[in-house]
Every structure is written in C-alpha cells, then in structure tokens.
Simulated scan of single mutants.
Amino acid sequence: MTEAPQLAIGIDIGGTGMKAGIVDLATGSLVSDRVRIPTPEGATPPDVLATARELIVLLGDQAKDLPIGVCFPASVKNGVTLSAANVSDEWIGLEANKLFSDALGRDIHFVNDADAAGLAELKFGVAKDQPGLSIMTTLGTGIGSAFLFDGKLVPNTELGHLIWKNKSIELYASASARERADISWAKWTKRLQKFYSHVEMLFTPDLFIVGGGVSKNPEKFLPGIKTNAPIVVAQHQNNAGIIGAASLVLG
C-alpha cells in the first residue's frame, strides 16, 4: 500500500491577482486546478483575508483541513510584514501570520512572494543542486527577487527597489511598466538589460532565473538579455509562488 502524498495549499498574493492551488509536496506539482481572483482594490488586510477564504472554497473539498503556505509582496520576518509593495500600507508592521491563522482557522506559513518562487525552484526546479549564487527574479506588477546560495534561501532581498533615476527600478523595468508605457517587447528588453547588468555588477551570480507572469513568453524578451551568468526561465513559471508557499509546510 503506497503512502498518500503529503498535500498543502499554496496561496500567492500579488498586486493584481490572488492565486491558489493544492500542491503535492513530494513532487512540487499542482494536484488541483489553479484558481485565481483579482486582488481587491486597495488590498487592505480584511479584503485580502476575505479573498483568501474565497480561494480556499474554490479549491473544493480536497482543500479541507490542509495546511496553508502564503506568499505576499512584502518583506516578512517572523511572520510580520515589514513593508508593502502594491498593497495597502496597513500591512506594514502587521502580524500577518497570526492574522491569517486566526482568520482561516489552521496553521499558516508566511513568506515574501519572490522568496516563495525561489524556494519552488530550489526544491523542485532549475535551482535544485545548483552551486553558488542563483538569483531568482519575478517580473510582474513589480520586480521581486530571491537569493539562493548553495541550496539555502537568503530571505528578503528587494532588487526591484534598486534606485534608477531617483525611483525604484521596478517602476521602469517591471512587466507592468511595459504595459503602462505601451512600449514594444524590444524596448522593454533594453530596460531589462539595464536591470540585469546592474545586478550582475553588484552580485556576480552563477545563475539568473526569470519568473513571474511574463515567464510564459520568454521568446519575446529573453534572447535579448546578455549576461555573463546563464539566464533561464523558472521551471514552474507563474505557479512558482503557489508551489514555494506550499513547500514552507515542509519546514
């Protein structure tokens, strides 16, 4: 008799959408449909919690009593959100881990969204067994980052907030910046090149990993990025946050 797979729910809270799925923690694969609800306007704590409840309902009976990992666009330390990117400032200094645990009635594991994506690649993707420094970047509403060094996560890096022209570089080079500026993929690639060249100069990584919403269209920009380190697409693409958040249950 084979042992049933260990399952957990991953919830990925982003600036524009909230997504969830049930993950097999042995393989890092989704065993449910991915469900998505737009992030509520303003992304206040009560509204985000209400949407998280809706996502769990959408996952159906299989989600009942499963542990939950949550990833969120903020620096997270000891379950407390220390910043707020593309969400309400009410999250700053909030005991988010306890808030979610009380609201959802079960054990919660809370982490930064890009760190969750990095964990997915570290445990189940292209960063597995990769020596040295891998830098995961998530290109979406903002730019998230995760440092993965010799199989360990170095949490709470915020490369999207490197300063470019007196502002956070994510306002210039994120996927949403391309849409706001209504520029071609080629022009956006030139912006991304500035970002990756600067990061490489600062940290000299052994590998760049590109995730986020645009990772499903790598042919439109990745060939135009030139770095000394290899630059590859995240294996789990835009599901990496869900998978990495769920993997927190493993400890």
Rank of each mutant, 00 (worst) to 15 (best):
N78A: 15
V80E: 09
L133P: 05
V154C: 04
L66K: 07
S174C: 09
N156I: 11
S75E: 10
D102R: 15
T81Y: 01
L55C: 06
T137P: 01
C71M: 13
S83Y: 08
S176A: 14
N112W: 01
F147W: 03
S88I: 07
L159E: 06
E95M: 11
D65G: 08
K187M: 14
R178K: 15
Q193H: 10
A52D: 00
G69C: 09
V76N: 02
P73I: 02
I108Y: 05
V80Y: 10
N166Y: 07
V76R: 06
S168G: 13
G93C: 14
D61E: 15
G60M: 04
N97K: 15
G142C: 12
S75A: 13
K123Q: 13
F110C: 05
S184H: 09
G140F: 00
D115E: 13
N97C: 10
G105C: 08
F124W: 11
A173P: 00
L192V: 05
I56C: 13
A117F: 06
W164V: 01
E179H: 13
W164M: 04
D89P: 15
L66P: 13
A63M: 07
C71Q: 06
L153S: 03
P155S: 09
P67A: 07
A120H: 03
G105L: 12
G69D: 00
W164D: 03
E121Y: 00
L58A: 13
T138W: 02
L119G: 06
I92T: 12
L55A: 09
F100A: 10
L133G: 11
G125Q: 11
D182N: 15
W164H: 15
L55M: 14
L59H: 10
G140A: 09
F110Q: 04
K123P: 02
T138R: 00
T81R: 01
D182Y: 07
D102E: 15
F100I: 09
V87S: 01
F147Y: 07
H161T: 07
F110R: 07
T141W: 08
S75L: 11
R53P: 00
G160L: 10
K128W: 03
